[in-house]
């Protein structure tokens, strides 16, 4: 059964690479700028998936202390009982920062559309060359 457990353990690692490839393909291969932004979001969430996967533990519960089983005395906490809170903290802030990044990118898209009237990359390059 060790082989099966090893295989299951690598699911998340392989899927994060697949999602990252999809995002990278959208960023490099697609010509529409909104599509590129969608790809950037997928890329970002694939990295978050990778880091959150590092925090998971088998047979562990969510990182909130179980209170009330013996009133008064502090429960003795074991590290193996709770999932690792540190990667979760780092990614919690990364998600909210991602919204700020997306907002700035969308603002730039609106400015580009107002000035050149298109969001397709090849037409955009042509119009930039024409207007100088």
């Amino acid at each position: 059964m060790a082989g099966l457990a090893d295989l299951i353990g690598q699911f998340n690692n392989v899927t994060y690479v697949v999602l990252m490839m999809i995002g990278f393909y959208a960023m490099t291969g697609k010509r529409n700028l909104v599509k590129k932004l969608v790809g950037m979001n997928i890329f970002q969430w694939s990295i978050i998936l990778f880091v959150v996967s590092l925090s998971a533990k088998r047979d562990a519960t969510i990182p909130i202390v179980l209170e009330g089983n013996n009133a008064g005395a502090l429960p003795a906490l074991e590290a193996a009982q709770y999932v690792n809170p540190l990667p979760q903290v780092l990614m919690l802030t990364a998600i909210v920062v991602g919204v700020a990044i997306t907002g700035v990118a969308l603002a730039l898209l609106l400015r580009i559309y107002k000035r050149y009237g298109t969001l397709e990359e090849d037409q955009l390059l042509e119009r930039i060359r024409l207007t100088g």
Partner: peptide
Amino acid sequence: TVTAAIISIFHDLVTF
């Protein structure tokens, strides 16, 4: 901060 920042971004995108 998060409330005001998200409303501000939304306002700027909508009223542009």
